[in-house]
Design a protein around this nucleic acid. Structure first.
Length: 386
DNA sequence: TCTGGGGTCCTAGGACCC
DNA sequence: TCTGGGGTCCTAGGACCC
């Protein structure tokens, strides 16, 4: 209890995280050619594809070497690793001893490891699912394994229900997949102050559409569906979308459609967030057969509704920051999972908490807030202290 | 945690077609 | 004219993940 003393949001250094991520991902690819990158800080490895000895002692030793290599290559980033016969077991294993831990689940031990854990450890069990399960007295994965399939189908529908039924039994044969095709692309922005000004909203749409269009082109993709996302002052969120018969990658066209969608929405009470997204992606552009050739400015980044330079006022770094407040240093978390015939292995890494000890007080000009230290990819700045 | 940004997948209803 | 059934596509929203 007690009053909240205040918070500070420090600038996340995404460029630095990305570089760290690349360093670690390269190490993982040395271990096995089959690496599925799940996010900037998590991946699955298939150890079998790397031709490794899949015995428990061998995998354990390999994981130890990998953790050491990651720490050495990154200046102290720690990795959490889980190994098992499936992605599910590997991932949960990597969560078990989080900062820098290693869990190897021997074949045959899967259910014994899973069943005592709370259902919320399962991927796909969030607050809503947890709540529904609680109402029926289900708290652990073991409890879940005792629920008949028809009940789960009834509560959660076909896909989710059947999925839970299998996961509770550690029944998971999803392969490690090297490359994923993007299904959608989007850009969004939360405003400091709710927006009502239609003109201002219009320029925001242009910028967001410009970002989306630029990324579309950079990836050599085009899209048929444009979606606008609107979060109202009260946090209610709606989407409006529209599908064209032909795909496009033209930022101006994306912006035009987004404007049209926004125009249908009452924004008079205040808009907190605006987003523009595209889906129904195609790998090529078959566009503008009957309209002005978009190729005219295809080569000119300078032509596009300018997005990069200006957008949000840079001081996001210090936006909510007030000097002299307590800041707890978070870790920069990341993870990986390897796969194998023994199973898949999950690895996570976390950055060192810059100063030892959980709480520090900073002055606004404290250099720790704007570290320029030599290994500039080292995660010295917490991503989101509380 | 009263909420940042970028994603994925699923469901349900309606339109439309055969 | 009405009655089905089945399939696909589009739209909107929700749950979840990192």
């Amino acid at each position: 209890m007690g009053p909240v003393r205040g918070r500070a949001f420090l600038a996340p250094r995404f460029a630095a995280y990305r570089r760290t991520s690349e360093v670690v991902m390269a190490l993982l690819r040395d271990v096995s050619p089959l690496v599925e990158q799940v996010s900037i800080d998590e991946a699955y490895l298939d150890l079998a594809a790397g031709g490794h000895d899949l015995s428990v002692p061998a995998v354990t030793a390999l994981a130890d070497r990998l953790r050491a290599a990651i720490a050495a290559a990154t200046g102290g980033v720690t990795a959490s690793i889980g190994a098992g016969t499936s992605k599910l077991v590997a991932k949960i294993g990597s969560d078990l001893r989080k900062p820098g831990g290693l869990t190897v689940v021997a074949p045959g031990d899967e259910q014994a490891v899973l069943h005592p854990l709370p259902v919320t450890r399962l991927p796909g069990v969030g607050p809503a699912t947890d709540e529904r399960l609680r109402r029926s007295g289900v708290r652990t994965i073991g409890d879940l394994a005792r629920v008949p399939l028809p009940d789960l189908l009834d509560w959660f529908g076909q896909a989710h229900g059947a999925g839970l039924y299998r996961l509770a039994r550690a029944d998971d044969d999803r392969p490690v997949i090297g490359e994923h095709e993007a299904k959608s692309l989007s850009a969004e922005e939360t405003f400091d102050v709710d927006l009502t000004d239609r003109v201002r909203l219009g320029t925001e749409i242009d910028q967001l559409a410009g970002r989306v269009g630029a990324r579309l082109r950079a990836a050599g993709l085009s899209a048929r569906t444009v979606t606008v996302k609107i979060r109202h002052y009260d946090f209610t969120t709606i989407t409006r979308s529209l599908t064209r018969s032909q795909p496009t990658d033209d930022p101006r066209l994306v912006a035009q459609l987004a404007h049209r969608l926004l125009a249908e929405v009452d924004t008079s009470a205040g808009i907190r967030l605006l987003g523009v997204g595209v889906t129904t992606l195609a790998g090529f552009v078959q566009d503008d057969l009957f309209t002005t050739p978009a190729t005219a400015e295809a080569d000119g980044p300078q032509e596009q509704p300018q997005t990069a330079g200006e957008s949000p006022p840079a001081p996001a770094a210090t936006a909510g920051w007030r000097p002299g407040q307590d800041v707890r240093h978070d870790t920069y978390g990341a993870g990986w999972v390897w796969g194998s015939g023994l199973g898949r292995v999950s690895v996570r890494f976390e950055g060192p908490t810059t100063p030892p000890g959980p709480v520090r007080t900073f002055a606004a000009d404290d250099p720790a807030l704007h570290p320029a230290g030599p290994p500039d990819w080292a995660p010295a700045v917490p991503e989101r202290p509380v």
